[in-house]
Each structure stands twice: as structure tokens, then as C-alpha cells.
């Protein structure tokens, strides 16, 4: 199977993730959609690495995974705190950060 198919799959995953971020209000879902987009990017990196015979992409994928893990830690903590404060996990309710 040609590696290009993995890129198509990644594009599909990314689109699903992006649509989720835009459409869903629940912070947990939005968060998972972001994870989906990150993993789509990982998939492209690995696929391109394979296509070009270069290991840089795979290394980069590991970086992304580490960053994503860190982000999960911080992000989930924020969401939990937000839920405790407002009894809601809707992203639209947290709209105080504006001028």
C-alpha cells in the first residue's frame, strides 16, 4: 500500500478534528478533537518520513507526542477547574477574556 494513503487518512482525521473544534461546545470534546488534529499531524509526519526515507519526521512525531501529553495535563486541569467554578464545561460560557 502506498504511503500516500496514510496522508489522505490524516487529512480526513484532521478535518474531523477541526470540525469538532468548531462545532462542539463541550470543552472535553473540543479537547479530544484537538488531540485528533495533533495525531493527524503526527500521522503525516510519519508518512512523509517514510516517503522521503528520512528519520526527521519520526523524531518530530515524538516531540509532538511529548508536547501533546504535557498539553493534556495542563488542559484537563484547566477544564476541571473551570467545571468546578462554573458547573459547566461549555467553551462558550468561558468568554470573559475579551476587551
Amino acid at each position: 500500500m502506498s504511503p500516500i494513503n496514510y496522508v489522505y487518512l490524516a487529512a480526513l482525521l484532521f478535518t474531523i478534528g477541526a470540525a469538532g473544534v468548531l462545532i462542539r461546545r463541550n470543552a472535553i470534546v473540543v479537547f479530544m478533537c484537538i488531540e485528533l488534529m495533533l495525531n493527524a499531524a503526527n500521522l503525516t509526519l510519519v508518512a512523509f518520513s517514510r516517503m522521503h526515507g528520512n528519520l526527521d519526521g519520526q523524531i518530530m512525531a515524538f516531540f509532538v507526542m511529548v508536547v501533546a501529553a504535557a498539553e493534556v495535563v495542563v488542559g484537563l486541569a484547566i477544564i476541571v477547574m473551570l467545571y468546578r467554578a462554573r458547573h459547566s464545561a461549555s467553551v462558550d460560557d468561558a468568554s470573559l477574556m475579551k476587551l
Binding site: 468561558a94 468568554s95 475579551k98
Partner: peptide
């Protein structure tokens, strides 16, 4: 310009995308 800053995370995401 500051009216663009409406506080809704999802509208920021739209402009990003």
C-alpha cells in the same frame, strides 16, 4: 479592532482556520 476580541474561543478558532 477590539470588537473582534469577543471572548468566544470557537470564533477565534474559525479565524485561525
Amino acid at each position: 479592532l477590539r470588537r473582534l476580541q469577543n471572548g468566544f474561543a470557537r470564533s477565534y478558532a474559525v479565524s485561525m482556520f
